[in-house]
Design a protein around this nucleic acid. Structure first.
Lengths: 177, 177
DNA sequence: ATCTTATGAATGAACG
DNA sequence: CGTTCATTCATAAGAT
């Protein structure tokens, strides 16, 4: 493992198979260097600058830089997390680090399913107006409130939407909108 | 680290783990079609209706639809933004160097036509015929695996990264950060 | 060739 | 909305 420098210098060379970005050693070095020096989350502008600079060493795009930092940081983090768990040197306490389902219900829990649906104007003129004006005033973040999470802890029973995939007529005409 | 699995797009069938929403291919297709047809920011009602319809294909909640549109829109822009800087010469299309074989990857460029996708009338409601019998119906798409970047053979200047490649002129002055 | 590891890429979820 | 995080998928490179 590690970034044990291996020979990957082929970025600028010849037939680089263009499946996915394959950074050159120089590119990796610079990126790693930047990371080590404290740049963990470059801004968009920085990403573009870095990408631009690194393009000297070989084919690269800003999204590659973006992903690189994303991944590097995440893996650093996860590595650290793993060590923390795998190496409980501190005998004092235990840690049940992962519940594997901690993701939910952070602030979703605050909403009641009852809504502040202000009012549903029945402006039915001409052709059915299906677009309540009030929804236009909603900010996106407020919309989220409507969708109160309630991840039914699943499973054992609850879905009945079986593997019924054949579904002949895709009647999702969506004219319902 | 993990095992290299290859299963994707498991429909609403099996033991759907309630970790996070895993859209079926049908769901993704419909959502994508809606988006491409101009619905970029669905209202609360639309979200609920879409969710309701899509629930036929598998477990789904309104918030999933909400997030899907948020993410898709944001990433569409992000990509567009990036293309702008990475490829100043806006060409109408790009080509793929993707060799044959390997998992599908039939990326029909979704973002390539950026000179026409710009802000359509946001309200695509009422009877919108979304599924023309013979539209560009990609019969089956594994997963949207686009992001086709053109593989410039970086022919211009090949940086032969020799053993001691010290960038002459263009030195990485990382002080630009 | 097959398994394993490292890492590029994608995306659902969520934050500020 | 633009960003960031967590997880997962996919794949190139090593190891066996």
């Amino acid at each position: 493992m590690e970034e044990g420098m291996s020979v990957r210098a082929r970025g600028g060379g010849g037939g680089t198979k263009c499946g996915r970005w394959n950074p050159t050693t120089e590119q990796v070095k610079v990126l790693t260097d930047l990371f080590r020096s404290g740049l963990h989350t470059p801004s968009t502008d920085e990403i573009q600058k870095i990408s631009s600079q690194l393009s000297f060493y070989g084919k690269i795009e800003s999204k590659n830089v973006f992903y690189w930092f994303q991944n590097h940081k995440a893996r650093e983090r996860q590595k650290r997390r793993r060590i923390f768990v795998d190496e409980p040197k501190a005998e004092g306490f235990h840690f049940s680090c992962q519940d594997n389902n901690i993701t939910s219900t952070k602030h979703f829990s605050e909403i009641s399913n009852f809504n502040q649906v202000v009012e549903q104007p029945e402006k039915v003129k001409e052709t059915l107006q299906l677009f309540p004006p009030n929804s236009l005033n909603e900010s996106e973040s407020e919309k989220l409130r409507f969708f109160a999470e309630d991840c039914k802890e699943n499973s054992a029973f609850s879905y009945n939407i079986g593997p019924e995939k054949d579904h002949p007529t895709l009647d999702l005409r969506l004219s319902f909108l």
